[in-house]
Design a protein around this nucleic acid. Structure first.
Length: 116
DNA sequence: CCGATGACAAGCA
DNA sequence: ATGCTTGCCATCG
């Protein structure tokens, strides 16, 4: 329908995004696109990232560090107060990070559609 | 109002 | 693997 996102859908997307992120298992990670698809808005991967940046997901209790781009790259490091805090959180869960990218991405990736 | 930018993604050369 | 292009939407100067 709408080429633009309706405010009602935006609310729906926001709710779904946070709910899905909260379900990401420890030691696993997913991508913006995967979350967008699971939320029912396949083309709003960019919006997902934007929403994560808006709210302070950490104080909201959301494991935002488990959300990376489709290639397993930690594109959110800057928002995590940098200093490799995002990496630290991931490695503390057993996820190997090399050069800002998750190793064994195919194995670590958690698809909310399939595994949910 | 318009162009650039950004926690993105998929396709193609 | 690298780099460019297009699609999407909100923010900013």
């Amino acid at each position: 329908m709408a080429g633009r996102i309706e405010s009602e859908e935006k609310e729906q997307l926001r709710t779904a995004v946070y709910a899905i992120v909260a379900l990401i298992p420890l030691g696993r990670a997913t991508s913006y696109g995967a979350i967008a698809r699971a939320a029912g808005f396949p083309q709003y991967s960019r919006m997902v990232g934007r929403m994560m940046a808006w709210c302070d997901s950490r104080s909201a209790g959301l494991p935002a560090h488990r959300v990376v781009n489709s290639q397993g790259v930690l594109t959110a490091r800057a928002v995590f107060g940098n200093k490799g805090e995002m990496e630290r959180l991931l490695e503390a869960e057993g996820i190997e990070v090399r050069s800002g990218r998750i190793r064994q991405w195919k194995r670590v990736f958690w698809d909310p559609q399939i595994e949910l």
